[in-house]
Design a protein around this nucleic acid. Structure first.
Lengths: 339, 339
DNA sequence: TTGTACGCGTTATCAG
DNA sequence: CTGATAACGCGTACAA
């Protein structure tokens, strides 16, 4: 190293007696390189502890070694789990995670994202629902040469760009579980309008009823927006019904906790007076009382897979898994209806 | 703009008829500039929509316009709230947030962080507890010219580098609340060893007992590690005691939820048979049944303040608030002891 | 297979 | 106050 700071590619070149281009080739694993030369250079690199400067690389390559997480997801658990999954595979790589929340609903959202991608030039971008469903976002990433992976409740892009769960089938199984326990009047707390996940879960609910020959009644469906409070409000509507539903499927755990809360306030016993099934298997599901029967959404696994798609060498050919199955977790919030 | 991409500083210089250094001065708000020249340049900038390239700036300045969040915090809610607070002020600035979790306990943690700071050259760094208590981390940031702010349960650095809450006083108040409700046998679920927050909260607990002339009994203290499961285990130990404590202060909400869970499993009624007070006011506190009396830790506010310290123009002089008060939130988990 | 010369877009130096 | 010119550290034609 020359003066104060860090060793540069020039130092390595000088010490190894080669040109800096050769060092550059070593760094970037160029295939056309004399093995002997490579080893000599690598030895010097290791000796002086040289590490390429990311800023200079970014300038020359017009690409940063950053993975962007772009989202407007209202569910903290989802976001956090995704982050953890992503970071798990990014750790020990040269990539760092840059979190960029946006405001869907804002008319400038697309511009915001464009500026982000244009300026930061991330190597790859992870798109979370619900904005992951927006095709122009994906196009935008492609336009700037950023890899992207979209997360969703159904496959709506190529395997290379997609990690999807099959929410419809999972919910169908969950509601069938309720039916097999003897329930016929089953409420649905729907997710927010415009969310693909809300739609898929609704479809699963209706499919299960259909399978069992139970007619779908609109009054048994209450609108929610994935928040605890909306779950409480939905429960108030549902529990005012006469006859009351004996079970409720809630499109996520947070709302299910809200349903449980309201039911409790009304003096109902769970699961005796009301069975509840949620979706996500977030921590709250196992921490409330009684523990919630729910659908385990393998979100961290999906995030890990997404990270691999984003940074992996191989292009396109073997994109890895892109469909992940959710499974029912049976706990104490479901019982047979009280006669 | 010349060819395909974005306009550069050269385009601006050419169109404005000045040198690019002058444009650079405009961008960086250099004070020594002819007002007329400045206006002309700014006009051109606005017209062609020029935006400086962050990569080039980073290379020349040896400093990225990124704020790093370095942490090894076991509590997802804490991390997420900090992120939200940070992002709230970073939004609409040129800064982005880069999240870098580390592994305390790993012998290479300091090296990991050094490499991160050395390579990414973040403009500023936010350090979360418990690693924020590590002075060598702070020194490391300073060494690389990165601003830093440490978050903690007590002030252990200059105002400029600190956002602190006064946990001790807050817990003292919370436990006093229990005492005033008539409790004398009050259990403590302690936080993990080596955490300043755990220590401060314990001190607050003991101070409150002392104020009331109640002797501190070691058997009434159970070790926890801030996880739900550790709260359950702590409760098992505490509830096996004879006579049983009539109330428990838990050093965070997650463990308090664990205590509540275990108490429930044993058929205890909350708050009739056991009063519980938590700490944090995370979402679970208001979502479990009964809603938890807890100490509201203004963590998002602290994070916002930290972000301002990190990016604000003024140096040192007016560093803004650095001490934040936590307040007791009274809900339904506390009652007078059953005679 | 390797090296030379130059470009990436910005800031710093130091003269005018 | 302003402008040539040289960094900043690395990648890429293209030549050797």
């Amino acid at each position: 190293m020359k003066k104060s700071g860090q060793a540069t590619i020039n130092d390595v070149a000088r010490l190894a007696g080669v040109s800096k281009k050769t060092v550059s080739r070593v760094i970037n694993h160029s295939p056309l390189l004399n093995e002997e030369t490579r080893e000599r250079v690598e030895k010097v690199i290791a000796e002086i502890g040289y590490v390429p400067n990311p800023q200079a690389r970014a300038l020359a390559l017009r690409r940063n070694f950053l993975i962007g997480l772009i989202h407007d997801n209202p569910n903290p658990h989802t976001v956090l789990n995704v982050q953890q999954g992503l970071l798990e595979v990014l750790r020990d790589t040269e990539f760092e995670l840059i979190v960029h929340p946006v405001d869907r609903g804002s008319p400038t959202m697309l511009d915001d994202i464009r500026r982000f991608v244009e300026r930061q030039r991330p190597f790859g971008v992870m798109l979370l629902p619900p904005i992951s469903e927006n095709d122009s976002l994906a196009a935008l990433c492609a336009e700037y040469g950023a890899r992207y992976v979209r997360m969703g409740s159904a496959a709506f892009d190529d395997a290379e760009h997609m990690v999807a769960s099959n929410d419809r089938e999972a919910v169908r199984g969950a509601v069938t579980h309720l039916i097999e326990a003897g329930h016929r009047r089953i409420g649905l707390v729907l997710g927010p309008h415009g969310f693909r996940s809300a739609f898929e879960r609704q479809q699963g609910y209706e499919a299960a009823l259909h399978d069992a020959g139970i007619p779908v009644q609109r009054t048994l469906t209450a609108q929610g927006d994935y928040t605890f409070e909306s779950g409480m409000r939905a429960a108030e509507r549902l529990l005012d019904l006469s006859p009351r539903p004996t079970a409720v499927f809630s499109s996520n755990d947070t709302m299910a906790a809200g349903v449980l809360h309201t039911a409790r306030q009304r003096g109902l016993d769970i699961p005796r007076d009301l069975s509840i099934v949620g979706f996500d298997d977030t921590s709250i599901a196992s921490q409330i009382w009684p523990p919630l029967t729910t659908v385990r959404w393998p979100i961290a696994t999906m995030a890990r897979a997404a990270a691999l798609k984003l940074i992996d060498e191989e292009d396109a050919d073997d994109a890895g898994e892109s469909l992940f199955v959710s499974t029912l977790v049976r706990r104490a919030s479901v019982a047979a209806p009280a006669e």
